[in-house]
Amino acid sequence: MIEALVSGKLHGQPTQKIAKTGKPFVVAKVRAHIGDADVFVNVIAFSQAACETLLALGDGDAVALAGSLTPKAWTDREGIARPALDLVASQVLTAYHVTRKPRALERKPPDPCESQQSSRHDELDDGAALDF
Rank of each mutant, 00 (worst) to 15 (best):
K9Q: 14
Q48F: 03
I44T: 13
T70D: 04
L85Q: 04
I80V: 15
I44A: 11
A95K: 12
P110E: 07
S118C: 10
G22N: 08
A66Q: 15
A66M: 12
E123I: 14
F46I: 05
V43M: 01
P109C: 04
F25S: 03
L57P: 02
A19N: 11
E123C: 13
G67R: 00
A4T: 06
D111F: 05
A45I: 04
S119A: 12
M1E: 12
F46C: 10
G79Y: 02
T53Q: 14
F25K: 03
P109V: 04
A129F: 11
V39S: 03
I34G: 00
L57Y: 03
R100Q: 10
D59W: 07
A66N: 13
V43A: 01
Q16Y: 07
A32T: 07
I34K: 03
T53L: 11
L87E: 04
T94V: 02
A45R: 05
I18D: 02
L130F: 09
K23A: 15
A32D: 01
L65Y: 01
Q116W: 11
A50S: 11
R103L: 15
E114K: 15
R100I: 03
A129K: 10
V6W: 00
P109A: 09
F40G: 07
A95R: 15
G8D: 00
A129I: 11
A104C: 07
L105R: 09
E123A: 15
G79E: 02
F46R: 05
I18E: 07
Q16K: 09
A56H: 09
A28G: 06
D126V: 02
V43W: 00
R107Q: 09
S68G: 12
L5N: 13
A64M: 14
L85G: 08
G79I: 02
H33G: 08
F132R: 11
L54Q: 04
